[in-house]
């Protein structure tokens, strides 16, 4: 185990009480090191989304412990008072649909997070340009989201997730709307970014095309995770 990245120990989540109570998570244990990309797979209703919401600090776990970037954020209760700031500064999100803000151009979609964190506009836009260049979409910096292709939108979404140097990125089925080639490109980019920015990335997916690319996979079933080795198949275009 590492002392940074993500460490989850005995995480539980129960919805409801009494006879109608449902245990969505029954003691999840996971760890993801900085620079590592792991797959989280499981059937519908297995608890993937609940785990993601607990990790994303938008749902309160019932019990357990979570450590993020070396800091205990949950231990039988939140240890961080400002969960919004936690999400803003420590967690990046990539969704199935990019969910870019439609009225902001590409640069400002990425720069918004550093701005929300209190950075000056110029510094925030500088950071955005750096990430857009790293993700090879800098040439579309003034475009509006509606003018981008699906793949470009997802790259911008990844850039946004990385904007505040978070120790962890949660990617919720980021390749679902993409064809095989673009899906593998997105995974390659996520791996590249994880290495470049020492970020731990959890990719929730059903996508058979990308599952073989993970070196480690967590299967989740009935609220319990099982770790296994992945194929770690070489990604096209990886240096």
């Amino acid at each position: 185990m590492t002392d940074s990245g993500i460490i989850i120990e005995g995480l539980r989540k129960r919805y409801g009480e009494g006879d109608t109570a449902v245990d969505a998570l029954r003691g999840v244990n996971m760890h993801v090191s900085p620079g590592e990309v792991i797959g989280l797979i499981g059937p519908s209703g297995s608890g993937k989304s609940t785990l993601l919401k607990c990790l994303g600090a938008v749902t309160d776990p019932t019990a357990g412990r979570m450590t993020l970037g070396g800091e205990v954020i949950y231990d039988e209760g939140w240890r961080i008072r400002d969960l919004r700031a936690l999400r803003r500064d420590k967690i990046g999100f990539v969704f199935q649909s990019p969910y870019l803000i439609p009225f902001l151009d590409v640069t400002d979609n990425v720069a918004l997070l550093p701005m929300l964190a209190g950075n000056a506009n110029a510094a925030a836009r500088g950071r955005a340009r750096e990430l857009l260049e790293a993700l090879d979409v800098a040439h579309r910096d003034k475009a509006m989201p509606s003018q981008l292709s699906g793949g470009e939108q997802q790259r911008v979404a990844i850039a946004r997730a990385l904007a505040n140097h978070p120790p962890v990125i949660l990617a919720d089925e980021p390749t679902a709307p993409l064809d095989s080639e673009r899906a593998l490109t997105v995974i390659r980019i996520l791996n590249q970014m994880a290495r470049q920015y020492h970020t731990a990335i959890i990719v929730v997916t059903h996508d058979e095309k990308i599952i073989p690319t993970f070196r480690r996979i967590y299967h989740i079933r009935d609220g319990v995770t099982h770790e296994e080795e992945g194929e770690g198949r070489e990604l096209p275009g990886t240096p």
Binding site: A85, L112, L113, L116, R160
Partner: peptide, 13 residues
Amino acid sequence: IREIAVLKLIGAR
């Protein structure tokens, strides 16, 4: 609503 949810998720006050 979706944009507002995203804004809140990424830390907008």
